[in-house]
Design a protein around this nucleic acid. Structure first.
Lengths: 389, 389
DNA sequence: GGTATTAACTCAAATAACTTGAACTATCAA
DNA sequence: TTGATAGTTCAAGTTATTTGAGTTAATACC
């Protein structure tokens, strides 16, 4: 991850690529659009848009959707994203399991697989990932020569930080450059990120943050992560480790504690195990919630408080359009938290002009991070960077 | 402030403008550079850079600096920013006073003035601001037809938020669009922002964050503000109110309190007034510090703690290259805080590969926000937005 | 029902900025 | 002294865009 200021010149070729991205992005966002509408939105000439659309049709990334007449004048021919126009592989590496999905260009999952890992050593992971890639391409042959890239989700933090060696879940990857490794193994453009960032992108591409410019995603992982999106792109920080919100100490009735000791899978598990439960997994939590298990309810109370604190930090520091809560946690639990959290009224985020809720549940389920891995790639094809003023 | 996703197409004209910005930015950052060096940095052809430089010389924004021979080959002619190539006006509006500066293209202040405000009503402020603009142009006639724009710093939050009417320092501006108002009055491009954001830009243009891509600025205003810079540009949030870090409750020995009750001008003043001091202003604090006033020292202890908490939030959420502490507070006090804060070692920001200190003092003095107002304009002329990958 | 108006779209030419490739120049090293 | 190296310029060539005139197909009005 680089920290240098952004500097690259532009030329005809790069303009072209930017404009194709912008056209695809607008159409993805709106569902379908006509040439003239696009030209106005992008501040380009109709002719330019016409040429670009002809190109994208040729390349099989767009489909014609029939004309739509709105008032006077020639009805505009609408264009939509062609799902099979491009595919992105999403890979989530956890210490003992790998998840893989294949998304089409609209962000729909067309392949999903889970694969147990016997070892988390880089060479074994790479081997399994190429197998998963092959399985995906066998199941969806249309993707064979239309792969846009692969997104990889792995536990951070990345690089040599003060957290190194302490909380790393994949110690074997300490001195490896994952992006390079996967890029060589897969022969595809690769983006690597943590679970929370990826999850945010999943919601932006096909979930409840569809097309939003600025929002935050609170992710229940082992710990608690935060994905920040600004101007349609992830805010990764200077070293790619932005969003480690779980380590922040927040006030508690008995002093203070890191946020994720009260708001994370780790913390539910801990609390439930203390009271004699065992084998705490997704399904178990779901069941306990269905039966209103008192211990789980106690945890939920404390977690709601912690969530309120997290929201204060997120809203005051980042001022997002909305915040999304998700991750590998049963929907019912997430909904409970969203319903029961108390949001501070004295906040810059309580606005009369924002139609979105301040906090909402994610719409992508427990595989959100894996989906998001692939969404990282799609987003780079659908969202140009901010224009010069 | 807009919240929609960023979408604008590119064409030859916009490429040109982007490339000129990129060339100026690279030169600003490096001090001076040759054509070939620029071409490599921007991934443009040497010929393109040559044409752009010819243009910028013609426009009076660059100066030739003589050749520099480095090893074999023809020595490269160096180019530097021509200070009088462009000027930016910086205005800081406070309830009872206005500050104004004029910066040249290198970010040097060539005019500074303070003006007492009898009323903070929009029409009176506008009148005074145009007067200050005229005074600046009289004192620096070279700026007359080379004004790039005006930056305005005002207390936020902007728009109708949950804080409206409670903490606003300029109630008369509640239902006014400041940007539009100033733009019409001054006939210049205008950018409006809060003090912390502006301060961050001041340090990026001519202070200790010179040219940095990603950093944070903690600003001692009346309250406590946070300026976030990512990829060389401010992160403003969906509604322009990002960075209200002062309102976040943090743990204290006796429960919890909003950060700015312990770390802000307001809080020093409060603490010193409680113990019998009066007329607490900048100079008074400076004197009390020089004499190691026990009450001030007590405040400093609590403030250091609070600063430590702020740093945990900033580093974990944003992962900056460095954080800068500044604002309208004596340098000695800022230095004391930086020296005495205890930074958590278990942080993603403790890295072996970052040469910058995790926390440092600002280099722009107490006028930093006013300087920053003008720096907002300069930054837009020196930093292109991120390129497509 | 006919006609004017509106808006989307296409074709062909013009434009603007960048890239390419060959030639030239100045410095260093052997 | 000669060769290698690197910066720079000149003149064409390339590319994606804009411009402007003309076509098509709806709605609105008389």
């Amino acid at each position: 991850m680089t920290s240098s200021p952004p500097h690259q010149g532009s030329n005809a070729e790069r303009s072209r690529s930017r404009n194709r991205t912008a056209v695809l992005g607008q159409i993805h966002h709106a569902g379908e659009l006509g040439r003239a509408e696009l030209a106005r939105a992008l501040d380009l000439s109709v002719q330019a848009v016409s040429n670009i659309i002809a190109d994208l049709l040729q390349d099989g990334m767009l489909v014609e959707k029939g004309a739509r007449s709105a008032g006077r004048g020639l009805p505009a021919v609408q264009y939509g994203i062609k799902p099979e126009g491009g595919f992105a592989l999403g890979i989530e590496v956890r210490p003992n399991v790998i998840f893989a999905v294949l998304l089409d260009l609209t962000g729909k999952a067309v392949f999903t697989r889970r694969s147990v890992l016997k070892s988390a050593r880089p060479e074994d992971v790479i081997l399994e990932v190429t197998r998963l890639r092959d399985a995906a391409l066998t199941e969806v042959p249309a993707a064979k020569d239309r792969m846009l890239g692969a997104g990889i989700v792995m536990p951070g933090p990345f690089g040599a930080t003060g957290l190194s060696g302490r909380e790393t879940e994949l110690p074997e990857w300490q001195n490896v450059n994952p992006a390079e490794l996967f890029q060589n193994a897969l022969g595809l453009p690769v983006e690597v990120s943590n679970d929370a960032n990826a999850a945010a992108m999943a919601e932006r591409i096909s979930g409840c943050a569809h097309g939003l410019g600025s929002f935050a995603y609170l992710y229940f992982g082992t710990g608690l992560g935060l994905g920040l999106v600004s101007q349609g792109h992830l805010v990764r920080g200077a070293f790619g480790n932005a969003g480690e919100i779980g380590h922040i100490p927040v006030p508690t009735p008995l002093g203070s504690a890191p946020l994720e000791t009260r708001l994370s899978r780790m913390s539910v598990r801990h609390q439930l195990e203390m009271s004699g439960h065992s084998n705490i997994d997704f399904e178990k939590i779901e069941k306990l919630y269905a039966t209103s298990d008192p211990e789980l309810m106690t945890w939920l109370g404390s977690a709601s408080d912690a969530l309120g604190h997290a929201m204060q930090i997120i809203e005051n520091v980042f001022d997002p359009q909305t915040t999304i809560l998700g991750g590998a946690m049963p929907d019912a639990v997430l909904r409970h938290l969203v319903r029961n959290v108390s949001l501070n009224n004295a906040s810059v985020s309580r606005r009369s002009d924002n139609p979105l809720p301040r906090l909402q549940c994610g719409a992508s389920g427990r595989l959100v991070a894996t989906l998001g891995a692939a969404a990282l790639i799609l987003n780079s094809r659908l969202t140009p960077h901010a224009a010069t003023h």
